[in-house]
């Protein structure tokens, strides 16, 4: 008997989709800023100006959104918790190995998980770190226009660790890492959805998953 349970609360789903929207916007505008492939036909246009503006606004939304999600990892239900990113209890480690053997096609049955899987948690933690570095390097580069301003006071220390050009390279390369994540993330979701048939894909829209009765406790 399968039971329909509420896994992803509204803030989890909303922040997920805002992240998607911001990352797509940031990547598209970022690619243009790094390599402006559209050339203005007259000097009255403001293409780079607007693209940068959109990039900066999306960056602010992304960071605030991230902050809300981090808040919810303390305030939300047991599936939203930050603890999911650190699956280091004995039980979670066993699940982690079972999960890896499933992905490596050694076993054919995935461990049934309701919230984040252990491997997913580790990956999300790394993505969180990457997003953090991206935000810090991004705001540091943004602050260069006014080295006496508050932004530079907050983020100028980055340039004592790496030259400006190196910081720009790091910021650029993180975009590619996030693209790899998106490729693998979408694949894994579709794959698991087709194997587990537990409503994983639809759960990020409506929040519900279908779980066998004995698993729900």
């Amino acid at each position: 008997m399968e039971k329909r349970i509420y896994v992803w609360e509204a803030p989890v789903r909303v922040t997920h989709w805002i992240s998607v929207f911001c990352l797509v916007t940031l990547a598209l505008t970022g690619v243009y800023i790094g390599n402006p492939f559209i050339t203005a036909t007259s000097a009255d246009q403001y293409i780079m100006g607007w693209v940068r503006f959109v990039h900066f606004v999306a960056a602010y939304i992304f960071v605030v959104n991230l902050a809300v999600r981090i808040y919810w990892s303390f305030a939300g239900n047991k599936y939203a918790t930050w603890k999911a990113l650190f699956p280091f209890s004995q039980e979670r480690i066993i699940t982690l190995f079972r999960q890896m053997s499933f992905y490596a096609l050694i076993s054919t049955k995935p461990p049934q998980e309701i919230g984040h899987t252990p491997l997913g948690g580790i990956v999300y933690f790394l993505i969180l770190v990457l997003c953090g570095i991206s935000a810090i390097t991004g705001f540091a580069l943004f602050s260069l226009y006014n080295p006496a301003g508050p932004m530079h006071i907050l983020f100028g220390w980055v340039f004592s660790l790496a030259a400006i050009a190196t910081v720009r390279l790091i910021h650029h390369l993180i975009m590619w890492f996030l693209i790899y994540f998106v490729i693998v993330h979408i694949y894994v979701v579709l794959f698991l959805d087709s194997v587990e048939k537990n409503g994983l894909l639809s759960s990020i829209f409506d929040g519900y998953k279908f779980v066998e009765e004995e698993k729900t406790n």
Partner: peptide, 24 residues
């Protein structure tokens, strides 16, 4: 360039994903 490396690895990731699906 950074972008050539980036696109190259993205292609590898996509091929890897497809291979995994077939193998599975």
């Amino acid at each position: 360039t950074a972008d050539k490396i980036g696109a190259g690895v993205a292609a590898v990731a996509a091929v890897g994903v497809a291979a995994h699906r077939i193998a599975r």
